[in-house]
């Protein structure tokens, strides 16, 4: 177990280094931040000064080494645009994104799995088909389009919910959250729904497919034959067995929800990391982009790790050592 953890950690470190290297090259390939940062009215002296001040006059590998040296001591550099430490900037925006992603995932799981279960048990019924039709619509429409329609309908036409921004926040375990007050919740609802819709549809389909396979398995037939109640068959036997792929997907999707929050955040002006990232890409604010990715990758590796753990708990046939290449 400890070995497994250590190996995983070492691998993750490699991932982080490889990735930061790629981002450095990527941003370098896109363009020169100086062209965006410096006021176009400024003279050449000012451009040269800024280039030097931001360290962009040195060769790329040197800039990268400086970054690595800083990163080793926890300093991911200063934002070109805001002039504050990039990590600080991201961490200050992180709670908003996590809350949004988490809430979206809760909506997706809370609605998606029961609906998928129903659709899987009654695949030919009107309800089952209706659910599937909904799921198809759900992932057919681009997120940004759905977002605007939600705003049009709930905020502009009906005036029930605010169109953008984050509401009142309260501290919960030291983290500012907004779902504890009506104002905060009302701001959270639309973007979370927008973000959840795609995952919701995915979960419905996945659960349905799994359930339909599970009901044909011998253990379910056997359980039925034993005369177990319908509820118990579903609750214990089917649900437990379909959980493996579903947990994998939920784990994987949580990362992608955080990433996809980029679009939702920029439409709903939700002050999270996704919006910060888009702005930073538009401004070529490299330290923020790199730091963002570092934080996300770290988070992601942690999630993957947990998925593997849960996996091994749910399915005793999968042992931890194997999933990281231990052989047999």
């Amino acid at each position: 177990m400890f070995n497994y953890f250590l190996r995983r950690f070492g691998q993750s470190l490699l991932v982080l280094i490889a990735m930061s290297c790629l981002v450095f090259l990527g941003v370098f390939a896109i363009g020169n931040p100086i062209d965006l940062l410096v006021n176009p009215q400024a003279d050449e002296i000012e451009r040269v000064r800024t280039t030097a001040a931001l360290g962009l006059d040195r060769p790329l590998y040197e800039q990268y080494l400086t970054f690595l040296k800083g990163a080793a001591s926890g300093d991911l550099g200063r934002s070109f645009v805001f002039g504050v430490p990039a990590l600080e900037l991201i961490l200050s925006k992180m709670p908003a994104t996590i809350e949004l992603a988490f809430f979206a995932m809760v909506i997706a799981v809370a609605i998606g799995i029961p609906l998928g279960l129903v659709a899987g048990l009654r695949p030919d019924g009107l309800i089952g088909r209706g659910i599937m039709a909904f799921s198809i619509v759900g992932f057919s429409l681009p997120t940004f389009w759905v977002g605007l329609v939600l705003i049009m309908f709930f905020a502009v036409q009906l005036g029930w919910l605010p169109s953008n921004g984050r509401g009142e926040t309260t501290l919960l375990f030291g983290m500012p959250v907004s779902f504890l007050s009506w104002d905060g919740l009302s701001h959270l609802l639309l973007p979370a729904l927008n973000l959840a819709l795609f995952k919701l549809s995915l979960l419905i389909r996945l659960t349905r497919a799994q359930v339909r396979e599970a009901v044909l398995q011998d253990y379910v037939k056997f359980a039925r034959a034993k005369g177990l109640s319908h509820g118990r068959v579903i609750g214990v036997h089917i649900l437990k067995n379909i959980m493996i792929p579903i947990v994998t997907v939920i784990g994987l999707e949580f990362g992608s929800v955080i990433a996809f929050a980029i679009v939702t955040e920029s439409i709903f002006a939700w002050p999270g990391t996704g919006k910060l990232l888009i702005d930073s890409i538009n401004q070529l604010d490299r330290p923020v982009i790199v730091a963002y990715l570092m934080v996300i990758v770290t988070l992601f590796i942690a999630i993957n790790f947990m998925v593997d753990l849960v996996y091994s708990l749910l399915d005793p046939r999968v042992r931890l050592g194997q999933s990281s290449g231990g052989g047999r």
């Binding site: 006021n39 000012e46 800024t50 001040a53 070109f80 002039g83």
Partner: peptide
């Protein structure tokens, strides 16, 4: 310090 576009102009 760190100004991305200063007022030197």
């Amino acid at each position: 310090p760190n100004s991305p576009s200063s007022f030197a102009t």
